[in-house]
Design a protein around this nucleic acid. Structure first.
Lengths: 185, 185
DNA sequence: AACCCCATGTAACTTGTTACATGATTAA
DNA sequence: TTAATCATGTAACAAGTTACATGGGGTT
C-alpha cells in the first residue's frame, strides 16, 4: 500500500543505493516528479531492512565525511516489487491546485487571471524542456542495450512527463485565449 | 495553504451547500477528481464558520430525515477565495502509482505487464467518456449565459480532464505496442 | 562571513484515509 | 432481508511536510 516503500524498492531493484542517493534521485533527477523528505527515506529503509526486503551491502567511509550506508535489494524485496507491479490497482486520482484556481476564474478579474496562467505556463514549459532533454539523453544511451534493459522503462516514464507538460502548456494557452476574447484590453 | 479549505470555499462561492452536498459534488460529479471524507468536510466547515468565512444560512428539516445545515459564503470568504486564486503558486507535483509500475516494467514478464496496462487503459477510457459527456452536457447549457458565468470555468476544468485522460490512454497504447514488439507471442 | 554540499537522522505538525456510529425510509 | 440513500459527525491511523541537529569541506 504505502507508495514510498514501493518507490524505494523500485530504485533499489536497479542498483544499490544509500538513503541520500534515493532522496537525490527522487527530488532532482526526475525533477519534482516525486518528492520525499529524509524523514521518510531513512526510517523506511530501516524498517525494510528489518523485514528483509533490503540488506546493508556495506558502509563507505570517506575520511571526514559521514558514513554512507549502501543498501541492496534482497530476493524477497525483488519478489515484493514484482508482485506489486503486476497486481491490479485502480487509477489514481488526479489532483492539482491550479485546476481549482481555474474553476474560480469567473470570480476574478480576467487580466489578473491571465497573469497567473502565464506564470504557471512558464513553469510547465521549463519542466517540458527538462523532460525533453532527459528523453534525448536517455535515448542516446540506448545503443547496444538489451530489450529488457531498465532504460526502456525509464524512457517511457519520462515520455509521459513530456506529454503531460505539453498538454498543460496547451491548456494554459487555450485558457488565456478564452479569457482575452472576453476582455479585450 | 490547506487545499480542502480552498475547495470548499470554491464550491460555496457558487451556491449555498450543505456538507453532504459538498461531499457529493467532489466524489461523484467530477468523478474521482477530488475525493474527500466526511471527517474533513464537517470539521472544516465548522472551523470556517468560526472564522467568519462561511455562515449558516438555515437548517432544513424534512420530517424524518436528519437536519440539513445549509452554509453560504460570506464576504470575507469570497475575498479569501479571490486572494488565493490570484496569488502566485508553484506547479503541483504530479504523482501516479502506475507510472512507478511502468518504471518497473523491465523486471516483469511483458505479457503480464501488458495485461495490467490494458486494465489501466480501460479505466482511463471510462473516465474519458464520462468527462466528454460532461463537457457536452455543460456546453449545451451555455446558451444565453453571460461571459462571466461560472459555467465557462467549469467547462475549462473538465476539458482538462478530457485531455488528460486522452493522453493517458494514448500513452498506454504506446507502452503496449513497445512491449509486444519485444515479446511477440 | 555566509551559504551550499554531503549524509545521517529526529521531532512536531498538518493532511488524508478508513472505519465506525446513528437512524428512518425506500428499492432490490 | 439486505442494501442503499440521506445527513450528520467522531476516532484511529497512515502519509506527507517543514524544520531542526550535527559537522567538516568547498564555494561565493
Amino acid at each position: 500500500m504505502s507508495s514510498i516503500r514501493q518507490a524505494l524498492l523500485s530504485l533499489l531493484a536497479r542498483e544499490p543505493l544509500s538513503g541520500y542517493d534515493i532522496k537525490q534521485r527522487m527530488n532532482n533527477r526526475l525533477g519534482p516528479f516525486w518528492k520525499v523528505g529524509s524523514n521518510q527515506v531513512y526510517p523506511e529503509l530501516a524498517r525494510m531492512e528489518e523485514e528483509g526486503l533490503v540488506a546493508l551491502q556495506g558502509i563507505e567511509q570517506h575520511d571526514y565525511r559521514p558514513a554512507r550506508k549502501l543498501y541492496e535489494i534482497t530476493e524477497a524485496g525483488r519478489e515484493a516489487v514484482i508482485r506489486w507491479t503486476t497486481e491490479p490497482g485502480g487509477a489514481d486520482q488526479y489532483r492539482d491546485d491550479f485546476l481549482l484556481k481555474a474553476y474560480n476564474s469567473w470570480l476574478v478579474d480576467p487580466e489578473r487571471m491571465i497573469e497567473g496562467i502565464r506564470e504557471m505556463k512558464k513553469q510547465h514549459e521549463e519542466k517540458l524542456a527538462a523532460y525533453e532533454a532527459k528523453v534525448a539523453e536517455l535515448t542516446s544511451q540506448l545503443a547496444g542495450r538489451s530489450v529488457a534493459d531498465p532504460l526502456f522503462s525509464s524512457i517511457s516514464v519520462v515520455e509521459f512527463g513530456v506529454r503531460y507538460e505539453r498538454l498543460y502548456v496547451e491548456w494554459c494557452e487555450e485558457l488565456i485565449a478564452k479569457l482575452s476574447r472576453r476582455e479585450p484590453e
